[in-house]
Design a protein around this nucleic acid. Structure first.
Lengths: 171, 171
DNA sequence: TGCAACTGCTTTTAATTCGAAAGCAGATTC
DNA sequence: GAATCTGCTTTCGAATTAAAAGCAGTTGCA
């Protein structure tokens, strides 16, 4: 938690927090993948290596982006939780996903979630953020109202994968 | 312009384009500072060094985030321009600025622009993007309607600076 | 017409960071 | 009791970063 910043510009400070190739992917996996444990996060699409993951998790905790606590069900497991600061990145994630989808060579299955987030708009993002607050901050759950946002996104992903499997392996 | 990506996830691909400590600052200085030349960009708040700047500019051009052409007024000058892809980052910049302002130790003078962007909302962002299209893509200018967005932001910055100077050096 | 300042970089060298692979001690499962 | 799982750490070569100096011109001004 050192205090020597390159400048007090909000964009610069944001980049000092997550302006690298991995931090935001870890957060992505926690938000959209519901991952909470080290070994889960290690299985990212992009193949992060364990030393880098350990380092980033430590830094993110130090900066207040995550918290870490023991898993009561397993003496060796640590549980990482999002903080409000990190949950507040959901709209940025949505914008980033939309931008990437528009301008970069994304694959269908890995961008279907971004598409749904874009179509859902701020209203969906808010609902998602509320669900994350329940899951990670122990906020009071709202009246359950069908599947969660994450479940909806995940189902869409699996549907694309199933279709693709069918297409490549026809009966 | 290689084609080996870590994954086809839109967030990952976005990070592969500007997920480092400098690229987005260069783009910030072009968008908000109106900078177009190498030597101008070298004078960033954060003090980028010339080899890094040269490398990032080259990469950004290769990725289609910027274009480069000769300055007709000076045989040694190069002019860098934003592309539509980069102008489309304005809303993300605004969100990033708002997030940084809320959660990080920003300074007043360097965050006043972010504040105005946040208060202006999507309508202001769109106007700003249109102005950038005129400036960088040669789009047809809309009917001029008072100062540009950048001028307004810049004026607010200078006002804060002037007040601070007065406070530290009273008559 | 001369000279200082400016142009977009490149080169050099050292320090830092990255990243793949292997390893580890304790906990859990079967 | 053995295999597997836990969150890491260690090692070491490779890649990246960064400060500083330099460069071949071009331009502006006296």
């Amino acid at each position: 938690m050192t205090d020597d910043h390159r400048s007090g510009c909000p964009i610069n400070l944001s980049l000092e927090v997550f302006g690298d190739k991995w931090s935001l992917l870890i957060i992505r996996d926690m938000i959209f993948g519901g991952k909470r444990h080290f070994r889960e996060l290690l299985r990212s699409q992009e193949g992060i290596s364990s030393n880098i993951l350990a380092d980033r998790l430590k830094t993110l905790v130090e900066m207040g982006m995550l918290t870490k606590k023991d898993d009561p069900s397993h003496k060796q497991k640590a549980i990482y939780s999002l903080t409000e600061m990190t949950i507040a990145l959901v709209p940025i994630m949505a914008h980033l996903g939309a931008w990437g989808r528009r301008y970069l060579p994304v694959t269908e299955e890995l961008s279907i979630r971004a598409q749904l987030m874009e179509e859902g708009g701020p209203e969906l993002w808010e609902r998602f953020m509320d669900e994350l607050r329940v899951e990670h901050l122990g906020a009071a759950p709202a009246a359950p109202d069908g599947p969660t946002v994450r479940q909806t996104l995940q189902a869409a992903y699996e549907q694309v994968m199933a279709r693709k499997a069918r297409e490549h392996e026809p009966a």
